[in-house]
Amino acid sequence: MTKRDIGLFVLVAVLLVGTGLLQSWNAALYILNYGLISAVMALGVNMQWGYAGLFNIGVMGFTALGGLAVVLVAMAPVGAAWSAGGSHVLLALAVGLGVILGAIQIWRRVGRGALRGLAMVVWLVAGFFLYRAIFDPAVSAIEAIDPAATGYLGGLGLPVLLAWPVGALFAAGAAWVIGKTALGLRADYLAIATLGIAEIIIAVLKNEDWLSRGVKNVNGIPRPVPYEVDLQASAAFVEKAQALGLDPTTASTIFVKLLYAGLFAVVLIALLWLSEKALKSPWGRMMRAIRDNETAAAAMGKDVTRRHLQVFVLGSAICGLAGAMMITYDSQLTPGSFQ
């Protein structure tokens, strides 16, 4: 770390302390926590841009997938919605996957010519109508269940911290699919492709109410830390706050934000340590060689495409983790905010 880097960190620390002294410590800690989340996200972006030179500007799409994971893992399931159409939605998704896999087999097994084109068209059109025939009624039934409060399937009701690695897996899976098709592009073309795909992901979250309540948002996401009202109801906590000369209400909000800061700092420090180890390893040296001169690296026997896909998936996974952390901190998923 250079003197300039140390100076910048000291400057940020001074600004945060100044915010706490001149405005409020709640505001300072709020900024700190978002700074820690943004630092995690920046690590993911740096793996793609800095390690491999991949110009990805669709970061918000992977972040949104991390946020969706929190909803699907931590929110309680809506039993009435599952009874109304949950099984049919799962059946429709299975049909859609089967149509895609069938199309791949047709493309591989039928020889080139008009027959393959005709078979693909017939298969895809028939599969599309079958999928919609199952999916649309199920979605309508789910979204009609108390739409002001639910109108979606909910999640699994598991501890919210489990959603953080799941968010990383969601983003990594999407990145693998995207990377298989888009990493052949370079520079501006890759940037346009990733931006477009990110907008598609966000559009799905905004419009598929059965999945994420769309623009109606998902509120009340469980926390990994205590609620302020519970702390204020604790005689022991109130006594300690008064002993420090603090109002119990203010002390509870500061305490909760400090707990979040501790969680986020642990994740950030672990990722920094792992990324530095990776950067200084033979893998990191190989990635820098590929970034600087792909042709020379390929001539030395390095699989450039495979390594690009690898680092693209890793960086996206970290962005998904940051998205899960952010939604947990906000306690709500607002698809319209992913800009």
Rank of each mutant, 00 (worst) to 15 (best):
K3A: 14
R4W: 02
R4H: 02
V12P: 11
L15I: 14
G20Q: 12
G20H: 11
A27P: 00
N33I: 06
I37Y: 02
I37E: 01
M41A: 15
G44K: 07
V45Y: 09
M47R: 06
G53W: 03
L54M: 13
I57C: 11
G61D: 04
W82R: 05
V95Q: 12
G102L: 10
R108L: 13
V110Q: 10
R112Q: 09
G113R: 10
V122C: 02
L124K: 00
G127P: 09
G127H: 10
R132P: 00
I134W: 13
I142Q: 11
D146W: 09
A149C: 00
T150I: 01
T150W: 08
Y152T: 05
L161D: 05
L161I: 10
W164D: 06
P165A: 07
P165I: 04
G167Y: 03
F170T: 03
W176F: 15
W176N: 09
V177E: 00
A182W: 03
A182C: 12
L183W: 06
A187P: 00
A187Y: 12
I200P: 00
A203M: 12
E208G: 01
S212K: 00
R213K: 10
V215R: 11
V215T: 14
I221P: 06
I221F: 04
D230P: 00
A233C: 02
T250F: 12
I254N: 07
Y260K: 02
F264T: 08
V267N: 07
A270F: 04
L271T: 07
L274M: 13
M286K: 06
R291A: 03
A296N: 06
G301N: 10
D303F: 00
D303P: 01
T305R: 10
R306Y: 09
G315N: 10
G323T: 03
A324Q: 00
S331T: 11
S337M: 12
Q339G: 14
